[in-house]
Design a protein around this nucleic acid. Structure first.
Lengths: 340, 340
DNA sequence: ATGAAAGCGCTAACAG
DNA sequence: CTGTTAGCGCTTTCAT
């Protein structure tokens, strides 16, 4: 009944399925998309033909004809720490059920690269875009604004989004941590972080942190930056550097948990009294911390949830622009002493 | 000279640029793609028009017309440990310069999900596919085979690839580690790993490991599996469980570095003599290990390089199918004692 | 160096 | 319930 592929090297089209099943292309198309009413008999014929031929529809053509593209652009700065993979996991998880597919672009924190990634992605006319951060070049901003699709800026809400935003206030996160540290009685506080001129979120955390310090009449006693390499190792090294340079420091505020964990391991190895002699805190709430001998104080960046919500905004074909703020919880762990 | 957009809410087409610049659509197309000869004057006119309008080409239409799609499908089981993000980084890095873009699909180690991810991706008619592992369902295998594009199966080379393959031999990796452990004089060896029925690579490593053990007249003294949760924490817990159940165990072989690191931290906290009383080894060569107080023995899975090479095979429009085997180096670290 | 015509493979919008 | 007719926005091919 069903004719075999005429030329096995030729990519199959609807027409092939149509001929093999003796049904019009249009009906075949309907069956394959579960659209409109088709009799059970024809449906069976078509499905069998498609299956035996091994037909895979051409979405390029479908998208052009229907003006609908089931792609969601995701623009992130990096994949080399667990932050963005986790956001991606949240996005994938939600998109999975919707027929939408994520397309990922990595910018390495470079505005130029971000611009070209955005351009490339928009040229696929995706159904929506999810992009990390609120800071973009003028050109990037313009492209996103005129794209006519939902744009969700994620991670950060300290600023003006183009359209939608899902994230936390990093400035407030920094402030809260500082307040908790000060309340616990620490006074000689140092900052240890990445040297990333374009990591605006880390920068905002630090700003918030210093803001709260100065409100309490304090300033950072020391600061140390790094770039590249194993974060855990860098954490150890930086901690050693800071404590030998400024031995009277009584608190180390790290810009992320990995270097914080490194610092913690170093302090413990030195036999320092944590959190008595010295306290430590990081940022992100990575699950890794659960396995450490002592739990590092941190704040959850709500990564998974941010990914989920961003995806949901796009999947739900949003109406009015919305800003969803999430609220990180401060996890005191074992490295901030109780209020003195 | 250049007319403003007629309707700002309408997505721009070549025609708009054509009208705005007074040049035929064809010539505009040529300018925008740097194809064929165009006079400097017209080129300028066109570029200016495109820029002021904010035109972004429609790749859907372009792809349909040219039968060329600059997308590369990447199918991976998970994003939740650093293994695949690192592979992705290698892929992005190489693809960046080629005009090709990765599209990621995550399968969660589920064959059914893999099947549908492959189907979705192939329906975009990508220029190539990179897919983790050599084990696929019959349907997946069939789809990939008939796709007529380069297929690169990555991570593993113990098996028959559809087309190209880039990876290491996990069976041999397991064997080599066992040999090193045995040579160092350890005899009562336990295995601690993930409970992942579809992680064929972990399975192969364990098979190779046991194979080498039995060649030396040994068998595993104990084994412990886990799923989900913080790997570092699980490593601690499993290690405690194994050592209290089998106190005479003198070596712990972990299926990955994270649980290995957890085990190591636990042993050190207990004051156990590592590597004298007990040795440990993991797998993956994650950079995290560099920051640990003692360096865990491990084998590098060559993740970044695998990503790079796979991308290169596709970017280079490969000729004959090729299998690229990489060779992980055994890093003894500080947790296997010197040969006794 | 530039333009005109045809059509990529599919689906929207109508017929019947 | 099924088929027919036009395109979707570009690029290929062929003229000029």
């Amino acid at each position: 009944m069903i004719k075999p592929t005429p030329d096995p090297r030729h990519t199959l089209t609807l027409r092939d399925v149509s001929e093999a099943s003796g049904v019009s292309e249009m009906t075949v198309s309907r069956v394959l998309r579960n659209r409109g009413d088709v009799s059970a008999a024809t449906r069976e014929k078509v499905l069998e033909a498609a299956r035996t031929l091994g037909y895979v529809p051409n979405k390029i053509a479908g998208a052009l004809a229907s003006q609908r593209v089931n792609l969601v652009g995701v623009v992130i700065p990096s994949l080399s720490n667990m932050v963005f993979p986790e956001v991606m996991t949240g996005i994938s998880e939600v998109l999975e059920g919707t027929g939408l597919q994520p397309v990922v672009g990595v910018t390495n924190y470079l505005p130029d690269r971000e611009e070209s990634v955005i351009y490339e992605m928009l040229s696929w006319r995706p159904s929506g875009m999810i992009i990390a951060g609120l800071e973009h070049s003028t050109a990037s901003h313009a492209m996103l604004s005129r794209a006519g699709i939902p744009i969700v800026e994620i991670m950060d809400i300290d600023g003006a989004p183009i359209n939608h935003a899902v994230g936390i206030s990093h400035r407030r996160a920094g402030r809260q941590m500082a307040e908790a540290i000060i309340a616990a009685g620490y006074r000689r506080i140092a900052f240890l972080g990445t040297r990333m001129p374009n990591d605006f979120r880390a920068k905002k955390r630090l700003e918030g942190f210093e803001e709260a310090l100065s409100k309490a009449g304090l300033t950072l006693v020391d600061r140390e930056f790094y770039s590249g390499g194993s974060a855990l190792l860098k954490g150890r090294e930086m901690t050693e550097a800071v404590l030998s340079r400024s031995p009277d420091v009584d608190f180390l505020y790290f810009s992320n948990d990995m270097i914080g964990a490194g610092g913690l391991l170093w302090c413990l190895a030195q036999g320092l009294d944590v959190p008595g002699r010295i306290g430590l805190a990081g940022f992100n709430g990575v699950e890794l911390l659960d396995g450490l001998p002592r739990k590092l104080a941190t704040m959850d960046a709500c990564r998974l949830e941010i990914g989920r919500r961003a995806a949901r905004i796009i999947a739900d074909v949003p109406g009015a622009p919305q800003i969803e703020e999430l609220f990180p919880t401060l996890q005191r762990g074992d490295t901030i002493r109780s209020i003195s």
